[in-house]
Simulated scan of single mutants.
Amino acid sequence: MLNAEIIQIEEIEKEETEYEMKEGMKSKLLEEAALERGINVNRLSFDTMILTLEGKELLFCDMNGPLSSAAMMRIVDDKYQARSLIKRERVSVPASTYLRIFEREEIKTFANEIGYPIVLKPNNLSRGQGVYTNIESDASLAYHLDKISELVGDDCERILIEKQFIGDDYRFFVVDGKVLAATKRARANVVGDGVHTVLQLIQAKNEQRALDRDLSHYLIPTERSKLGRLYREGRTLETVPDEGEQIIIRDESNIASGGEGIDYTDIVHDQFNEIAVKAIQSIPGFHYGGVDVIAENITHEPSENNYVVTEVEFSPGALSMFPWEGRPIDMTNPILDFYLKNLDKL
């Protein structure tokens, strides 16, 4: 598969079924699970449908139903507010604040107070857009604020400034007080064979990703502007890694940035599961969702200093259902079971 005729990433055609072009992936997965159980589904739009559970019609958007309120979504999507609630449960969160893009001096002052490196995160973008990590100086901060300003287009928008925690990124999926899946979100990477360049290894990996129903939408980019870590560490797309050498290509760890899920469900330390459940339950009425944790190693016992909960996710992607390594873990049927269990509350 490794040859000069493999086309560049921007030219690779995404393999999508006709259904998935019309309907969102999360919504489609829930629809499929419902139909398999004989549940009536009335599709309304790209991400919205009505499921009829035991004669009761319930409106869903993606995998979120009537017990997932708009007020809850607003709090969860506000990372700073959500962290303030999580912190009340004595769960570690990064030092952070919200400031508007034009408040350059205040941002710089806060960055120096908490100490570099820091992370910048826009408040109104998703899938890792505009998230900048490893900012280690005032000059780098100014440069990345300019980039966010250009991307967001409105300097009155707020951004999150937080202390960077060094570790691996994990996503927990919690339903009704129980962790159903724990997945490491590995950063985009390739493993050398001593023969092929980084570019060729990316292209070969993208051929594998293109065969996956979910990962086919999120191939590893090859534009230099998106490969900050690769070049920062002194490598290029023409570098030939040694056999067995792993090369981390990007700082971002989400799937949309070319990352990959590795199942840790059966080996995660029980106390990390407890932390994930606490994070979800810290939001009043929040029954199921994702919890993002950065930790040195979630198979070891957590301490005050070896992890942080960075955010909770109102509508997490189907990460555990399409792992790069490990067993797939269903998200849809536990959600249907939760609503069937709680029909009397609707």
Score class of each variant (00 low, 15 high):
residue 2 L to M: 04
residue 3 N to S: 14
residue 7 I to H: 00
residue 8 Q to V: 00
residue 8 Q to H: 15
residue 11 E to N: 15
residue 16 E to S: 06
residue 17 T to Y: 11
residue 19 Y to I: 12
residue 19 Y to F: 11
residue 20 E to G: 01
residue 21 M to P: 00
residue 22 K to T: 09
residue 24 G to K: 12
residue 32 E to H: 10
residue 33 A to K: 12
residue 37 R to D: 09
residue 40 N to D: 02
residue 46 F to I: 02
residue 47 D to T: 02
residue 48 T to W: 02
residue 54 E to K: 12
residue 54 E to V: 04
residue 54 E to C: 09
residue 55 G to E: 05
residue 55 G to T: 03
residue 62 D to L: 14
residue 67 L to I: 13
residue 70 A to E: 11
residue 71 A to Y: 14
residue 72 M to E: 14
residue 80 Y to A: 10
residue 88 R to K: 15
residue 93 V to S: 06
residue 96 S to W: 05
residue 96 S to I: 05
residue 96 S to E: 15
residue 97 T to P: 03
residue 108 K to H: 00
residue 108 K to M: 10
residue 108 K to N: 08
residue 114 I to W: 14
residue 117 P to E: 08
residue 119 V to N: 01
residue 120 L to S: 05
residue 120 L to D: 04
residue 123 N to H: 11
residue 124 N to L: 04
residue 125 L to M: 09
residue 130 G to K: 06
residue 135 I to V: 14
residue 137 S to K: 10
residue 139 A to H: 09
residue 140 S to F: 07
residue 143 Y to W: 10
residue 146 D to W: 10
residue 146 D to G: 13
residue 146 D to E: 14
residue 152 V to P: 05
residue 153 G to Y: 08
residue 153 G to N: 09
residue 155 D to R: 10
residue 159 I to H: 06
residue 159 I to L: 13
residue 160 L to P: 05
residue 160 L to E: 15
residue 163 K to C: 03
residue 166 I to N: 13
residue 167 G to D: 12
residue 167 G to Q: 10
residue 170 Y to D: 08
residue 171 R to F: 02
residue 171 R to Q: 06
residue 173 F to E: 08
residue 177 G to K: 07
residue 177 G to I: 01
residue 177 G to N: 03
residue 179 V to T: 15
residue 182 A to D: 07
residue 182 A to L: 09
residue 185 R to Q: 14
residue 185 R to S: 08
residue 187 R to D: 01
residue 188 A to H: 06
residue 190 V to Y: 01
residue 191 V to G: 00
residue 193 D to T: 06
residue 196 H to C: 02
residue 197 T to Q: 02
residue 198 V to Q: 06
residue 201 L to N: 00
residue 201 L to R: 02
residue 205 K to Y: 06
residue 212 D to N: 15
residue 213 R to Q: 10
residue 214 D to Q: 11
residue 215 L to W: 05
residue 220 I to V: 13
residue 224 R to N: 01
residue 226 K to H: 07
residue 226 K to E: 15
residue 228 G to W: 09
residue 230 L to T: 11
residue 230 L to P: 03
residue 232 R to P: 00
residue 232 R to Y: 03
residue 233 E to V: 07
residue 239 T to C: 05
residue 239 T to G: 08
residue 239 T to D: 11
residue 240 V to Y: 12
residue 240 V to P: 05
residue 241 P to R: 12
residue 242 D to W: 04
residue 242 D to P: 00
residue 249 I to C: 03
residue 262 I to G: 08
residue 267 I to H: 10
residue 267 I to M: 13
residue 269 H to D: 15
residue 275 I to L: 11
residue 276 A to W: 06
residue 277 V to L: 06
residue 282 S to C: 00
residue 284 P to K: 04
residue 285 G to E: 04
residue 288 Y to Q: 05
residue 290 G to M: 04
residue 294 I to E: 12
residue 294 I to H: 10
residue 295 A to N: 14
residue 299 T to F: 03
residue 307 Y to L: 05
residue 313 E to I: 13
residue 320 S to E: 07
residue 321 M to F: 12
residue 321 M to G: 06
residue 323 P to Q: 02
residue 335 I to P: 06
residue 339 Y to Q: 03
residue 344 D to V: 04
residue 344 D to P: 00
residue 344 D to M: 03
residue 345 K to A: 14
